[in-house]
Every structure is written in C-alpha cells, then in structure tokens.
Simulated assay, not measured.
Amino acid sequence: MILLDTREFDHPLPLEMAVNAFKKLQGDNVIHMIHRREPIPLFEIIAKNNGRYLCIKEHETLWHIYITRSATRHLEHTDV
C-alpha cells in the first residue's frame, strides 16, 4: 500500500500528487490517500482511466481515499 498524506497541501497539489501516483500504480497495489476534503475531480480522473476507489469520510476534515487499478482487489478502510 502506498500512503499519500496530502492534508498539509493546498489545491491543486493534492490532486496532482494523486494523479501522478495513480499513473504509476501497477497490479493490485493500492494508494491510501489522506485528505482534508473529498477530492471529487480525482474520482472522475480515476473512473475515466479504468481505476476504482473507495472514499470514507472520517469527519469533516479527514477523508480516506483508497485507489487501485485492479478489478479484483478489495478496497477497505484501515487505520493509519
């Protein structure tokens, strides 16, 4: 699992970081992105590029987003 903590960065850096990591993602690897907002534009990019994601809101300023290219990988929330 690749941990990508973007909570301290301002837009557009979190989106750019996530897209760059997603481009390099292979096999059944998963990105665990931690963000302070729900990154809706990222979801559109992932979907258009045959990826899958799971987004979990822990509270108003803490979101966990799991991203994979694998069609069979199970995505789930894990504590960090």
Rank of each mutant, 00 (worst) to 15 (best):
R73E: 15
L54C: 07
D79H: 13
E58A: 04
M17W: 05
N49I: 04
V19G: 03
L15M: 12
D10Y: 06
L4G: 02
L62S: 04
N49E: 06
N29K: 15
R37I: 11
N50L: 07
D79R: 13
R7Q: 13
L42Q: 01
I45C: 08
M33I: 09
E16L: 12
E44L: 12
M1D: 10
H32P: 03
T78I: 09
A21H: 03
H59S: 08
D10P: 00
E38W: 03
I2S: 02
K57R: 15
T72Y: 04
K23I: 00
R37Q: 13
S70Q: 07
I46Y: 05
S70D: 09
I46E: 02
I40T: 14
M1T: 10
D10K: 13
C55S: 15
W63A: 05
V19P: 05
P14C: 04
V19K: 10
R52K: 14
T68Q: 03
Y53N: 04
T68H: 01
R37C: 06
R69S: 00
N29A: 15
D79E: 14
L62V: 09
R7F: 07
R37E: 13
H35R: 04
L62P: 00
C55P: 00
E44N: 14
C55N: 15
L15A: 03
V19R: 08
R69T: 02
A21F: 00
I67F: 03
P12I: 14
E58I: 13
A47D: 09
G27H: 08
L3Y: 09
M33F: 04
K57W: 06
V80A: 13
G51C: 06
A47C: 02
K57G: 07
K57E: 14
M17T: 07
G27S: 09
A18R: 01
I56N: 11
T72R: 10
E76R: 13
K24H: 07
G27M: 10
A71K: 15
H32V: 07
N29G: 10
D79K: 14
K23F: 00
R36T: 14
I46H: 08
M33A: 08
I31D: 09
L25Q: 04
H32A: 09
N20H: 09
I40C: 09
Q26P: 00
F9P: 02
H35P: 00
E60W: 00
N50W: 05
V80T: 11
E58Y: 02
A21V: 06
P41R: 06
C55I: 12
R52A: 05
I56S: 13
K23S: 00
H32D: 08
Q26E: 14
T6F: 03
M33L: 15
H59D: 12
P41V: 06
T78C: 07
T61L: 11
